[in-house]
């Protein structure tokens, strides 16, 4: 899959959550944490969110720290709530995202968040929202979901 298109299209998808945060940069993990909270508020709770630092500015260490918590939370959600393990999937390099806003790695992390959205209790709402998006974006989203489905093992 074209990983640069992946990041671009999934960034568009993430914006459909209409989350009002001061900094819309995806690489600090703040917006992602809000998206995850919207997807699964019981799991990505207020307590979990309180561990995400919001005032990271350009401090890459804090960004990476946030992104590590995001990735860990996502993998725990897959295992504990969805009963799935993601095997043989090239896990996102959160250092590369935090340090240099690596588009390909960002795409992989957003892909995992997409997997949470289309498998969660409210998945109907999220899938229908995707179906209302531009066709080129839908294709990328479909490919991203298909790739994840191949990597899921119960």
């Amino acid at each position: 899959m074209d990983k640069e298109h992946l990041s671009e299209s999934l960034s568009i998808w993430v914006r459909t959550f209409n989350i009002d945060v001061p900094n819309t940069d995806l690489t600090d993990g703040v917006l992602m944490s809000h998206v995850l909270h919207q997807i699964a508020p019981a799991f990505f709770s207020e307590t979990w969110m309180s561990k995400i630092k919001t005032d990271v500015e350009s401090n890459w260490r804090l960004k990476v720290s946030n992104l590590k918590k995001i990735l860990k939370g996502i993998l725990e959600y897959y295992a504990e709530v969805l009963g799935q393990q993601i095997t043989d999937f090239h896990m996102p390099d959160v250092n590369a995202i935090g340090e240099r806003a690596d588009e390909k790695e960002l795409g992989r992390l957003l892909q995992l968040i997409l997997g949470c959205a289309v498998n969660c209790e409210e998945k109907q709402e999220y899938i229908q929202r995707i179906m209302g998006m531009e066709e080129s974006v839908q294709h990328v989203v479909m490919n991203a979901i298909q790739e994840l489905m191949q990597k899921e093992t119960p």
């Binding site: 969805l82 498998n119 209790e121 998945k123 899938i127 229908q128 066709e135 479909m142």
Partner: peptide, 29 residues
Amino acid sequence: DGPKANAASEGVLANFFNSLLNKKTGAAS
């Protein structure tokens, strides 16, 4: 042939996302 290709593409997307809606998952089942 453009409209036919578009319709086919839309069909693929609709089929995929509809099957996803009906897929049982750990959370939704």
